[in-house]
Design a protein around this nucleic acid. Structure first.
Length: 711
DNA sequence: GTGGGCAAATTGC
DNA sequence: CTCGGACGGATTCGG
DNA sequence: CCGAATCCGTCCGAGGCAATTTGCCCAC
């Protein structure tokens, strides 16, 4: 496998949650770690607020008074500041002001573009002047247009309204509109690091600040400030940390190694590179006594860390950093810090398969560095993902002329070949070449020297029907004795896209042209089946598509992916031009127990234990789900289930089996864990069936029949 | 010392 | 993987 | 027709199950 390849943050977080779930019982000391740090009070000079001119008599004045009051000012700082920055970053030329029943704030003294530090808000406030009368609100236009410009809208945490900011001349206009409100989270302000030294404490602080605001643009600003102060050599590491991930990837450190920690240091002294070196050392410990050795190194590291640093380190090591900003936010922040185009930065990241090198190059050389990041055969890029639709008809309606392709239930692979060398990557860009000799052989047999193919690998039985997903996944997961595994369960690649061919980059070609290239390169036996639909509004063609969907299911596959003929390959994105359609199955199951939620679901009963009815009238647990629950439903079920509780051990609340839920699922799979030997794949709650009693719930036999039917 | 049991870490969907 | 909710910008709608 | 309301793309976090490998510990 790729040594030290950074793991995907989302995946890492999910794993961490598993750990946490296991440890949740009798150990809830970590709950606070993941949650946002309490907002720190922000010191706002009293006379900075005073000069503000509140022109409006109506809501605007009231709003600004509220916004600038002691209570709300830290919330506003984020929303306003970001807009002011945006204004100057985009060099919007402003001319005149409109006030009406809104608020006008003078911005003339902000200084030169790019010279707006963390104090922008205070400067704005401090230089406010009375607004002029008579500016026409109808003249408000879009950014870049002459005249007044709407800069954008910003939710303000803790207030049930949205600020709408318009600039005209040296004047900012603040509107408000009521909105549904998010959770209150004050944004701690504070200037960025005031020196070039990259202390680990700075990273921890920025992470905490980012976690403290729910505004995405505010997160971006915080990250941008941070990156501006970063040295290129520090950036890759710091970015990884800020994205909640360790550059080392796997470290062999779990909860056990972190249970007892050294007392925190009083003063921050750790540098980013120092922490990185220490963690690398931890990762390199192996062999006899490895655990103890790691523990000792970690003790040293934690002993040198302040309490805040320890908390952050712990979050990083356990994958529990929750700051509401991962790679996407880092990309935005990086673009803002370097003046590069955000879309360009994003594309560079997707094509190079990693954020860190892009960050380093951008900070060292500026926006022009982006040009060096292109699709490179041999280096993986993030695969394109698909949106989803409930039916083929819906997907066709959204796409127009398109093609319907089989969706195979296997492992996504990206196959590169260059100079006779074949490399195979997974969806998370792990190198699995060694584990999939069949794929290597297939790629080697194609008649081209250089290419990148996108496809799926899966095990088929003698009749060409797919084996259960679990078998394919097990095979791809095995790396110890590949030859034996391959003999026992051969797998085969099935390709559906070509991204590069003989020196040409095909990403920006429309699907139809890429597919034509695919047909030239890959024999039909190694391509997914495909049904073109040139005129989806035509009833005959629509039926053709529906029939293809049905036939695909009949062949034992998962569903279809509908692809617009004009769509380009949107690396790393859930592109709108790919839409997957899978059949939905449902069951009515009984709630046997429920678990207390974590994070934002703390205090709510969240994760339902689902049971099917057995012949003797008892209930057999089939799995759990927490998905599909709206906040309202969560509240409702908490109340209802508590009323039926028979036991609560602090983690699992056992209830009388009285409530019936309708559950959707993607399939039934065998389970080593549950008593029936069966469990549901991707179960989610559709609704509670108050019209059904547990005696009317679906039976284990029904589920078993569904299992045999779908495999 | 060696093998079995177990927990932890990863990764797939 | 799944889903719901939040954010921010774009577009639509009602007086 | 303008200004407020709504929509939409995107991101994030909550949390699921199965399978595999690796290293530690304990019993023999």
């Amino acid at each position: 496998m790729a040594e030290g390849h950074p793991q995907r943050p989302a995946a890492a977080l999910a794993r961490a949650q598993q750990q946490r779930a296991r440890l949740a019982q009798g150990d809830d000391r970590h709950h606070g770690v993941a949650c946002r740090a309490a907002p720190e009070p922000v010191a706002v000079p009293g006379d900075a607020v005073a000069p503000v001119a509140v022109v409006a008599q109506a809501r605007g004045g009231e709003l600004l008074a509220q916004l600038l009051g002691v209570v709300g000012v830290e919330c506003v700082a984020g929303a306003l500041e970001q807009r002011v920055r945006q204004l100057f970053a985009r060099r919007v030329v402003a001319q005149e002001a409109w006030d009406g029943h809104h608020v006008v704030v003078h911005t003339a003294a902000l200084g030169a573009p790019g010279d707006i530090g963390g104090q922008a808000f205070e400067q704005v406030v401090g230089t406010a002047e009375p607004a002029r009368e008579g500016v026409d609100p109808r003249a408000v236009g879009q950014r870049g247009a002459p005249g007044p410009c709407q800069l954008g809208q910003a939710g303000i945490a803790g207030r049930e309204e949205r600020a709408l900011l318009v600039v005209h001349g040296p004047t900012l206009l603040l509107f408000r509109t009521p909105i549904r409100m998010n959770s209150a989270a004050g944004a701690p302000g504070g200037p960025a690091a005031d020196d070039g030294g990259m202390l680990f404490a700075d990273v921890a602080r920025v992470s905490r600040e980012v976690a403290g605001t729910s505004s995405r643009s505010r997160k971006t600003q915080l990250l941008a400030d941070f990156f501006r102060a970063a040295e290129p050599d520090d950036a890759p590491i710091a970015i990884a940390y800020l994205a909640g991930r360790l550059p080392q990837g796997r470290l062999g450190v779990g909860w056990a190694a972190l249970r007892d920690r050294a007392a925190p240091a009083a003063q921050p002294s750790l540098t980013v590179r120092g922490v990185d070196a220490a963690l690398t050392a931890v990762g390199e410990v192996s062999g006899q006594g490895a655990q103890a050795g790691r523990r000792a190194l970690l003790q040293d590291l934690f002993g040198a860390a302040t309490a805040a640093e320890q908390e952050y380190l712990l979050g990083l090591l356990t994958g529990e950093v929750r700051q509401g900003a991962l790679d996407a936010a880092a990309v935005e922040g990086l673009a803002a810090a370097t003046g590069a185009d955000p879309a360009g930065v994003r594309r560079a990241v997707m094509l190079s398969g990693a954020l860190e090198p892009v960050a380093q190059a951008l900070l060292a050389d500026g926006p022009r560095a982006l040009a060096q990041f292109r699709l490179t055969v041999g280096r993986p890029l993030f695969p394109m993902l698909a949106a989803s639709a409930k039916s083929v008809t819906e997907a066709l309606a959204r796409l127009g002329p398109c093609a319907v392709e089989e969706k195979l239930d296997g492992i996504r692979v990206q196959v590169h070949r260059e100079d006779g060398r074949v490399t195979v990557f997974t969806r998370t860009l792990d190198d699995v070449t060694e584990r999939l000799p069949e794929v290597v052989a297939a790629a080697a047999g194609l008649d081209a020297e250089q290419f990148v193919l996108d496809g799926e690998v899966l095990a088929l039985d003698a009749e060409g029907r797919p084996r259960p997903f679990q078998e394919t996944a097990g095979r791809v997961g095995s790396r110890v004795d590949v030859a034996t595994a391959a003999a026992a369960l051969p797998v085969a690649p099935v390709f559906f896209d070509v991204l590069a061919l003989e020196g040409r980059d095909l990403l920006d070609l429309p699907y139809a042209e890429r597919h034509a290239a695919l047909e030239q390169l890959v024999p039909v036996a190694q391509r997914v089946r495909m049904q073109p639909v040139a005129h989806p509004e035509d009833a005959d063609e629509l039926r053709l598509a529906e029939d293809f969907f049905a036939a695909t299911l009949a062949r034992g596959h998962e569903g279809v992916v509908v692809k617009g003929v004009d769509g380009t390959y949107a690396a790393g994105r859930r592109g709108a031009s790919w839409i997957k359609v899978k059949p939905v199955h449902t069951l009515d199951l009984v709630v046997l127990a429920v678990e207390w939620g974590h994070g934002r679901r703390t205090g709510k009963l969240s994760n339902l234990h689902l049971g099917a009815r057995a012949e003797d009238g008892s209930f057999v647990m089939l799995g759990k789900t927490f998905k599909g629950l709206t906040d309202a439903l969560l509240d409702w079920q908490t109340e209802q289930l508590l009323a039926r509780a028979v036991r609560d051990d602090g983690h699992v609340v056992t209830v009388r089996p009285e409530l019936v839920v309708e559950v959707a699922y993607d399939g039934v799979q065998t389970s080593p864990r549950y008593p029936a030997g069966l469990t549901l794949r991707f179960a989610r709650v559709l609704r509670y069936r108050d019209d059904k009693t547990p005696a009317e719930a679906d039976t284990v036999e029904t589920v078993r029949a569904a299992h045999t039917a779908t495999r």
